[in-house]
């Protein structure tokens, strides 16, 4: 099993195909890394910034 052992030979040759697979795998991990942070709960400090503005505006 595994990506490397059962890849059929492509017309461009196994090296190019292998490089493409590796780039694809890196791309998947890159998005996963980014999305992991996107999916973290937003710390309260961020919302406090905008809430402070609300209070200032409301006091006028």
């Amino acid at each position: 099993m595994g990506l490397m052992s059962n890849q059929p030979e492509k017309t461009k040759g196994p090296d190019l195909e292998e490089a493409r697979l590796r780039q694809q795998a890196i791309g998947v991990k890159l998005r996963q890394m980014f999305d992991d942070v996107v999916n973290e709960p937003v710390p309260d400090e961020f919302l406090d910034i905008l809430r402070r503005h609300d209070e200032r505006a409301g006091g006028k």
Binding site: G2, R22, I26, K29
Partner: peptide, 13 residues
């Protein structure tokens, strides 16, 4: 590193 990334990507796909 490349091997673990490849196997992870394979699992995720």
């Amino acid at each position: 590193a490349m091997r673990s990334i490849l196997s992870d990507a394979e699992r995720l796909s």
